[in-house]
Nucleic acid binder design. Structure first.
Lengths: 119, 119
DNA sequence: CCGTATCCTCGTTGATACTG
DNA sequence: CAGTATCAACGAGGATACGG
């Protein structure tokens, strides 16, 4: 398990969940893998604005945390497919709630578009 | 709104939720505020191992994101109380799910205590 | 009691170039 | 196609000291 997750375990279960899911683009990745198995390049496209370097890193962490499965096909050109593990599929209702909450938050923000500038 | 949240809005609603809730100790703070209004010092105690500096910072961000309300009482000695806003209370089911998922993850990890050391 | 100010370190991320 | 290597820049976070 990753150190950040181990550290979260000493604090609170909610922090464990955040440690596993809180990385940049991670939940977006999981969200897209809910409905389909995707190749690296496909993920790169559906997740907007992520570099190959970051996408690789986030996928490796999700794999290390047992959420995502990585299947490599020994072909030319190479093909690598990513899918949710059994554990990953337990995230489905969570992803839905987060997505809905985020969308609702976005709507509210659109109604009062002030910026509070915390530094 | 904070820049990280604005940035997340351009990616995906789930990222918005993560941007608001993903900071260190944030969900732990929210979790504890679900059942009670708490003073700064009380939060400092129930959230383990957080410095005053970080706790202040996380609380200010949660306030900026409209999740937490900060009430200052002009007394000596000073008293500052933190509570959930209406928006913050919409997080309650989310916090419960994250807590359960994290606890379940922790149980699984306890059964296969391997470490994958991703750097 | 409830913070802020300052300094410093370390991890994370972006950009770019390269490879099996 | 699906990455890795390398370097530079940035920001989060700890330690410590101080203030209203």
């Amino acid at each position: 398990m990753r150190d950040s997750v181990a550290k979260a375990m000493e604090v609170c279960p909610v922090e464990v969940a955040i440690a596993v899911l809180g990385g940049s683009w991670k939940m977006t990745i999981v969200k897209h893998l809910v409905s389909a198995t995707l190749r690296f390049g496909e993920l790169s496209r559906v997740v907007g604005g992520v570099s190959a370097r970051m996408l690789t890193r986030q996928l490796r962490e999700l794999e290390a945390d047992g959420v995502v499965h990585r299947e490599v096909y020994a072909e030319v050109p190479p093909r690598v497919e990513y899918s949710l593990t059994e554990l990953g599929r337990t995230l489905v209702p969570l992803v839905q709630m987060l997505d809905e909450w985020g969308a609702n938050y976005q709507e509210r923000a659109a109604q009062s578009p002030s910026r509070s500038r915390i530094r």
